[in-house]
């Protein structure tokens, strides 16, 4: 097993150019539109793509957020999901108002993708609308009967609020640390660490690295990477998951450490993290 990127790399054998992908977003073949939206998120947002092309790609993806033609049997909007996910990668805040609009979409997965992307774009104007999705607290956070998901994308919303340093959301998020669903627990734990910097939250995630479910160990790894909790370096390197996941998590720690070091001199801790990363290549 590899992180998502490698699996998608296998599937996404077809190479496109940015203009082709943009054109495909309005192609008659719905599957080509869907693939083009994914492709733009993955490759169209890379720094080597010109600023002008990236802007045009964002315009086209914003249009795809309004799509009505690609519907699932249950009324979902596959193209909108991919477009909302892709828009998080472009660092283009023009997408914020439309993504905030998506938080009210009837499709759970569109709301989830929008919350994730809003967390990445870092614009604090979306904090209030994100907080509204937590209305009703833990009691309202139940499974939708017959569906594999909760009433709202709690995991994505809580993670986004953590990334946005939304201190005003801390009291709302705290009870989710004990939510029945482990992934929601981890999201809340990770956000609480970001909002309070209290080590006990990060240490809970370190404990989770020893859990019995490999999927949850991977989630805890990526959470520790996202918060850059450097004391977890050894525990990450020795956890029972694939090297790729551990390498990516340690990268998050290294980035945080280098940021904290400020000076151009490498710190002992930074070098220790790199030595661990070297063993995982």
């Amino acid at each position: 097993m590899e992180p998502i990127s490698e699996q998608q790399f296998e599937q996404g054998a077809e190479a496109l150019t940015v203009p082709q992908a943009i054109a495909n977003l309005s192609h008659d073949d719905l599957s080509l539109r869907y693939y083009a939206a994914w492709w733009l998120g993955k490759f169209g947002s890379l720094p080597e793509v010109s600023l002008a092309e990236r802007r045009v790609a964002v315009d086209a993806l914003l249009e795809a957020l309004e799509d009505e033609s690609d519907r699932t049997e249950l009324g979902g909007y596959p193209l909108r999901r991919n477009a909302a996910r892709a828009l998080g990668k472009f660092s283009d805040r023009r997408a914020v108002p439309s993504l905030v609009g998506c938080l009210n979409c009837s499709d759970f997965y569109v709301r989830e993708a929008a919350a994730q992307s809003l967390g990445m774009l870092g614009d604090v104007s979306c904090i209030a609308p994100l907080i509204r999705l937590l209305n009703g607290g833990v009691d309202a956070a139940q499974f939708v009967p017959g569906r594999p998901h909760l009433t709202q994308p709690y995991e994505a919303v809580i993670e986004a609020l953590g990334m946005l340093c939304a201190g005003q959301a801390a009291e709302l998020i705290r009870p989710f640390v004990n939510h029945a669903v482990a992934r929601v627990q981890y999201a809340a734990t990770r956000a609480m660490y970001q909002l309070t910097q209290e080590a006990e939250y990060a240490e809970r995630l370190v404990q989770a690295l020893r859990g019995g479910d490999v999927q949850l160990r991977r989630t805890a790894l990526s959470d520790l990477g996202a918060i850059g909790y450097v004391p977890a370096a050894e525990a990450i390197a020795t956890s029972a998951t694939e090297n790729s996941f551990k390498l990516f998590a340690l990268k998050g720690l290294l980035e945080r450490q280098v940021q904290m070091d400020a000076s151009d001199e490498l710190s002992e801790r930074a070098m220790q993290v790199m030595s661990l990363m070297d063993t995982l290549l």
Binding site: L254, V258, A270, M274, M277
Partner: peptide, 10 residues
Amino acid sequence: DAATRARVRF
């Protein structure tokens, strides 16, 4: 990439 830059310095 900040992590790779750090590795270059190392």
